[in-house]
Amino acid sequence: MPVISVPQAYNEEELYVDLRSLFGHSLFLKCEGFNFAGSIKLKAANGMVEAAEREGVLKPGSILVESSSGNLGVALAIIAANKGYPFLCVTDARCNLSSRLLMEALGSRVHTIVDPDPKTGFLGARLDCVRALCATDDRYVWLSQYTNPENWRAHFRTTAPAIARQFPRLDVLFIGAGTTGTLMGCARFFRRWHRPVRIVAVDSAGSVSFGGPAGRRMIPGLGMSVRPPLLDESYVDEVVRVEEVDTIRACHRLVRHGFLFGGSTGTVVSGAADWLARQNGPRDLTAVAIAPDLGERYLDTIYQTTWLRDVYGEDVLRSATSRP
């Protein structure tokens, strides 16, 4: 029986969903949303805060500030509330309303960017805002999830070893690419593993993380409008890009079986299912995909029919309406 005294001390590491009956291929989905932050971002947030405290960068009187599309902001808001730090999250108009309200309920302030930078999009505008804030007051401490190595180290220490314990014969691992902290931490761990593990990065169409032109992205979480500084492509075997309509269809296919997952998870599942369907080799691969989040924070977007039709058109759910 787990007994904790701080919210960041708990994360369920051993829960997997077998998706074979839904997608026709053996695929185990590692569920990372069962903690007090509701997403995998709690690991990176905790790692970055603890490192900043050890190094004396974060101390009494400091004000945490970070750019986030939602999930990391919620994680930092929880840790800040527990430790007594003020926290300011700089987000943008795509951030889910529930995430903003949750951060505010935890005592954090939320600043929402409404105008994207013409070249670097919302992320660039958010980063410019954070830099400007830090320049005006030296109490601000910016952990910088996009450049902070503690982001990937958190997953090198926790996420990847947890998968290795449960799947010692792992063949392929599907990981969503945002800041690439989870991707780089897991990829570095399995590069040292006793057997080859194929690392497949799943990115959102319209993201520039692995090259290509920027495009519209309405679902927060995965994808970047600037190249992720943490990314080292030498650790990545393959990249799968997923259109947002396929993210939505994967989420709705899952929820019709009672599994309410978030947009990042829908992207990863869609990419993994597509990759597995295209394989001509053995169909008994041991495949794992990482589910970064749950779906409650997407009830007014991905799971709201009016929003979907307004943004993507009438046919967005056509292929997700029937059970397999």
Rank of each mutant, 00 (worst) to 15 (best):
S5T: 14
N11Q: 10
F23P: 02
G24F: 12
F28D: 07
L29W: 04
E32A: 08
F36I: 13
A37R: 12
I40H: 14
L42Q: 14
A45I: 10
V49Y: 04
E50Y: 00
I63F: 00
L64W: 02
S68E: 08
S69D: 13
L72M: 15
V74P: 11
A75C: 10
A75N: 08
A75K: 08
L76C: 02
L76S: 01
L76M: 04
I78N: 06
I79T: 08
Y85T: 03
F87G: 10
D92N: 02
R94P: 04
C95T: 15
S98K: 15
R100M: 15
L102D: 08
E104Q: 15
R109Q: 15
V114E: 14
D115W: 00
P116V: 07
T120R: 10
T120S: 12
F122V: 08
G124L: 05
L127I: 15
C129P: 05
R131Y: 07
A132Y: 05
C134S: 10
T136G: 14
D137L: 09
Y140G: 11
L143Y: 03
S144T: 08
S144G: 06
S144E: 12
S144R: 11
Q145W: 02
Y146C: 07
T147A: 15
N148H: 03
N148S: 06
N148C: 05
R153T: 03
H155N: 09
F156L: 14
F156H: 13
I163F: 05
Q166F: 01
Q166K: 09
F167Q: 00
L170G: 07
V172Y: 05
G176P: 07
G178K: 12
G181C: 10
M184L: 01
C186K: 00
C186Y: 00
W193F: 15
P196D: 05
R198V: 03
A201N: 09
G206A: 01
S209N: 11
F210Y: 15
A214V: 02
L222N: 05
L222C: 10
M224C: 11
P229T: 06
S234P: 02
V236K: 09
V239C: 08
V240A: 14
R249F: 04
A250K: 04
C251R: 02
H252L: 03
R253E: 04
R253F: 01
L254C: 15
V255Q: 13
R256G: 13
H257S: 13
G258C: 07
F259D: 06
G263Q: 10
V268C: 14
V269I: 14
D274G: 13
W275D: 11
W275P: 02
L276K: 12
A277L: 02
Q279Y: 04
P282R: 15
D284V: 00
D284G: 04
L285Q: 13
A287Q: 03
V288Q: 01
A291W: 06
A291I: 05
P292Q: 10
E296C: 11
L299E: 03
T301K: 11
I302F: 00
L308F: 03
R309P: 02
D315L: 06
D315K: 09
V316H: 03
L317I: 06
A320V: 03
S322C: 00
R323W: 00
